[in-house]
């Protein structure tokens, strides 16, 4: 039977990210996970630093919104539960190699051009390199096609920042859910 709107809002509350810390299951939004320094399941510390630095260039505020925890959590989820946009962009799961190889290629490019890691570049250097990979593979790039990597990561950043109730409402657009998504996402 169809459900009424009110009935749905009462019956929701599922779907927060689950993290196991010291044997306890915590349910947090990506933003909250970042604030609480929750350990990562798939990504290494250095990969997180590159990812967050790249996210900040792609969409400032996305690191604080929990971009790295969002991606890390999704990479650790069963394929049926994965919510990354890459799943319908012609790449077969698992997607971990796509992310880790792309981040490594980005970092290697920063090192070969500027002699430092991506997250150590100046803001202008990061922006220039991002603009470059948006258009073509830089020389020596050894990862997924650079413009595609840029496209996917940019959309992940948009998901975390603007794809939540808080993000949509930050644009002055009412969320108007039939069924509320995980209520604290991005809050």
């Amino acid at each position: 039977m169809p459900q009424t709107r009110r009935a749905f809002i009462r019956t929701t509350g599922i779907g927060l990210l689950s993290f196991y810390v010291a044997g306890c299951k915590l349910e947090l939004t990506p933003g909250e996970a970042r604030q609480q320094d929750i350990p990562f399941q798939v990504l290494q510390v250095e990969q997180v630093r590159i990812l967050e630095a790249f996210g900040e260039v792609l969409l400032p505020g996305s690191a604080a919104a929990g971009l790295a925890h969002f991606i890390d959590h999704q990479l650790n989820a069963a394929p049926a539960d994965q919510l990354l946009m890459i799943k319908y962009l012609g790449v077969d799961p698992p997607f971990t190699a796509f992310y880790t190889q792309g981040l490594a290629a980005l970092n290697d490019t920063a090192k070969s051009v500027h002699g430092v890691q991506f997250f150590e570049l100046s803001v202008d250097q990061k922006i220039a390199l991002t603009g470059q990979i948006a258009l073509a593979n830089p020389d020596g790039w050894a990862g997924p096609p650079a413009p595609f990597f840029y496209f996917v990561l940019r959309n992940d950043a948009v998901d975390v920042f603007y794809g939540t109730k808080q993000g949509i409402e930050s644009l002055g657009i009412p969320y108007m859910a039939h069924i509320e998504p995980p209520s604290r996402w991005g809050e």
Binding site: M1, P2, T11, T12, L83, D159, A177, E180, P181
Partner: peptide, 15 residues
Amino acid sequence: NRDLISSGIWARRLK
């Protein structure tokens, strides 16, 4: 019906 969460991110489960 109650699995149809209003979210562009969550909707990817339907793909």
